[in-house]
């Protein structure tokens, strides 16, 4: 699971959970995979990101360095920050680990890079 996905993933499909975001991350195996750098996409997705959740997640998995506390109003032309963000959003991958609902503590395992978001009967809203 990439940190971009973590930045949009919630547990609010569980009955009674209102926001379910950000999910806490525990990572026991991490990989960095090369993905083509696509600055257009990075610039387009930035306004949709929850920056503080991204910083926190990146820090939790040991990649928080180089991320400013506040996102600058424009990244146009800042190649190095664009590449840092590209790396954190798309290249860093949690292969084994766990996500945790911030409201209920319900855990979602991550195996072979795939988070398991399947609900039990009594959790479905």
């Amino acid at each position: 699971m990439k940190l971009l996905t973590h930045n949009i993933l919630t547990s609010n499909i569980i009955k009674g959970v209102t926001r379910g975001f950000p999910l806490k991350i525990k990572s026991s195996r991490l990989e960095v995979k090369e993905v083509d750098f696509n600055p257009d996409f990075i610039l387009r997705i930035l306004p949709k990101l929850d920056w503080s959740a991204l910083r926190q997640a990146a820090t939790e998995v040991g990649y928080g360095n180089g991320l400013p506390e506040e996102l600058p109003s424009s990244l146009e032309g800042d190649d190095s920050l664009q590449k840092t963000i590209h790396n954190i959003l798309l290249q860093v991958e949690i292969v084994e680990g766990e996500l945790e609902c911030p409201e209920t503590g319900r855990k979602f395992p991550i195996q072979n890079g795939i988070p398991n978001m399947l609900l039990n009967e009594d959790e479905v809203s």
Binding site: L4, I8, L9, F21, N112, P115, N116, M117, L118
Partner: peptide, 28 residues
Amino acid sequence: LDIAREREVEGDIILGDMGDGMPFRPGS
């Protein structure tokens, strides 16, 4: 999904049941 991993697709994949609802932030 294991086949998708084997194929090294560029997208990120999630195990989930669409009938449970979409677990994402608004407007993603």
